[in-house]
């Protein structure tokens, strides 16, 4: 009951400020732009005689996967900000007065952000399938929306986005400074990890390690993205099963949150 109350409270927290829908709008526009753009390029190239082409049966999933491959940073940010704003605005004081059992508060926040991440996943997929699928259909390519495979992929993408938001919560507790958390999210997701994945894919042993990077695990869970296909070693079969990818993401979220609980959440609030 207390946990249910905590989740209700966190849902109100999340929905009663502007942050979530501002992030959601930016995400949907960004994802739609990428999916639509890539669909247009490949479909356009594919209809001409020469140039790099993808088989038409792989293209839709690649296009739709922009929902997670570029969209995942948004649930991470949402999760991280949900925690850091509590530190920044000193709202941990009333929060812990209303529920002194701090573990319940953090669990409530993690559950709420899993839900919010799933909602972000649905919105991002509407963006990628809407824009990308629309373009593909315009070029006369099968959108595969009638196949069960694509809907399993959609389900796994939603799960990935939910887990990303939970990772954001973990990161926020590890790095309570709002500015630092935002910088880390952007630097890691937009720069460091893509670079690491590309570099690691050059040799076999490093690729073995790199498959546990969160982005790789996410791609494994979802089942392919522009990174796995574009990387030199991407097609070599190094990679986790989808459920292993999901477990890696969940483990990262749990470990980060537990460490953050000890290092920041449990501390004196003054």
């Amino acid at each position: 009951m207390k946990l249910v109350n905590a989740v209700r409270s966190e849902v109100t927290k999340l929905t009663s400020t502007r942050l979530w829908w501002v992030l959601a709008i930016i995400m949907v526009v960004y994802v739609a732009f990428c999916s639509g753009g890539l669909a247009a390029i490949f479909a356009g190239v594919g209809t001409r005689a020469n140039g790099p082409t993808l088989p038409d049966d792989q293209l839709p999933r690649l296009v739709y996967s922009f929902a997670t491959s570029v969209g995942y940073v948004f649930p991470v940010l949402l999760g991280a900000l949900a925690v850091t704003s509590e530190f920044r605005f000193q709202s941990l004081t009333p929060t812990f007065l209303a529920q002194p059992r701090r573990g319940i508060v953090l669990a409530g926040k993690a559950i709420t952000l899993l839900i919010a991440g799933a909602v972000f996943g649905v919105l991002a997929l509407i963006g990628s399938i809407g824009a990308g699928g629309g373009v593909l259909a315009g070029f006369g390519i099968d959108t595969q929306l009638a196949t069960g495979d694509i809907w399993a992929f959609v389900g796994r993408s939603i799960l990935a986005m939910a887990l990303w938001a939970a990772i954001g919560v973990g990161l926020g507790t590890l790095v309570p400074s709002q500015v630092a958390a935002i910088v880390i999210v952007l630097a890691f997701t937009q720069f460091l990890e893509p670079l690491l994945r590309f570099g690691a894919s050059l040799t076999d042993w490093s690729a073995q390690i790199a498959q546990f990077l969160p982005g790789s695990a996410s791609d494994a869970l979802v089942g392919g993205s522009v990174f796995t296909i574009a990387s030199p070693g991407g097609g070599t079969g190094v990679g986790l099963e989808w459920w292993q990818g999901g477990l890696v993401l969940a483990a990262i979220a749990v470990v980060a949150t537990v460490i953050g609980y000890v290092t920041s959440w449990r501390r004196d609030v003054s």
């Binding site: 207390k2 905590a6 009333p94 529920q99």
Partner: peptide
């Protein structure tokens, strides 16, 4: 603001 804490406290 108050609803957040009223809910948390049931």
């Amino acid at each position: 603001h108050l609803a957040v804490y009223a809910q948390a406290a049931g």
